[in-house]
């Protein structure tokens, strides 16, 4: 069974249609890249999959392992294994990162009927993952994303992804604002999570990221729908020819 099936999805924001019948199928183990110019609706798609309020789905459906995702609250989706690494992670002053990570992880486990992590196991795991992502321990004591640089915020998203072990990872422009070293660290973190059970949807504006996270499929999105799908070589073609051909269409 497909992990994620988006079928003919139509989405409106404030009476304006942003997605016009978008379809996408993602199977376990696959890595899909979604590329497209700014404003083509990439973040909108990711938000609707994660369950962000403010979007009106006027047509189509989203199935996750055959279940209707649109019927579920955002936290239910998270517990089922949907994870979105945000393009713009928010800052949450007063909520210590470590406390947040533990609360979130245990909430997901509780929703799945699993036992809570013991404190030593949790700490060990956070320490391991944060070390591999080059995240200093004192960052975990600060408020969630408060005072983090752009790169630190992105690494914090990957850290959560590694901790929560979702089966569908959507990465929205995780390369934006990262220099080449930071990009490599983040990409290594993502690659370490690739597995036959887990699928990734990598949203990016630039081909550069796909040198590090090599996709199985590349979809080109323009004006609210997928206009072309191909293999990883499609990304290289786009790098040369640009998006203009799709935008004018």
């Amino acid at each position: 069974m497909a992990l994620l099936e988006v079928k003919d999805l139509q989405v409106r924001v404030e009476d304006r249609e942003i997605l016009h019948g978008l379809s996408l199928t993602v199977n376990p183990g696959e890595v899909h890249a979604i590329m497209g110019p700014n404003g083509s609706g990439k973040s909108t798609l990711s938000h609707v999959i994660a369950g962000k309020p403010g979007y009106e789905v006027t047509g189509g459906q989203i199935l996750f392992r055959g279940e209707d995702l649109l019927e579920m609250a955002p936290d239910e989706r998270a517990a089922k294994g949907v994870f979105l690494a945000f393009q713009y992670p928010v800052e949450i002053p007063g909520v210590a990162t470590m406390n947040f990570l533990r609360t979130a992880l245990n909430a997901q486990r509780k929703a799945r009927g699993e036992s809570e992590y013991s404190t030593p196991d949790f700490l060990k795991k956070v320490r391991e993952v944060s070390k591999s992502l080059n995240i200093p321990q004192d960052m975990l004591k600060r408020g969630v994303n408060v005072g983090f640089s752009g790169g630190e915020k992105k690494r914090n998203e990957i850290l959560q992804m590694a901790l929560f072990e979702p089966s569908l990872c959507i990465l929205d422009e995780m390369d934006s604002g990262l220099d080449i070293d930071a990009l490599r660290i983040a990409a290594d973190g993502v690659n370490a999570l690739r597995s036959p059970e887990r699928a990734m949807v990598v949203i990016t504006h630039y081909q550069r990221l796909l040198n590090y996270i090599v996709p199985d499929y590349v979809h080109v999105m323009a004006k609210g729908s997928v206009v072309k799908t191909g293999g990883k070589e499609l990304a290289l073609q786009l790098e040369e020819s640009g998006y203009a051909q799709f935008e004018d269409a």
Binding site: G51, K52, A73, P74, D75, V90, T103, Q108
Partner: peptide
């Protein structure tokens, strides 16, 4: 937006 971030990480409302 903060509420949504937390809920997207699995916290019930």
């Amino acid at each position: 937006s903060l509420l949504f971030y937390l809920r997207a990480r699995g916290l019930p409302e």
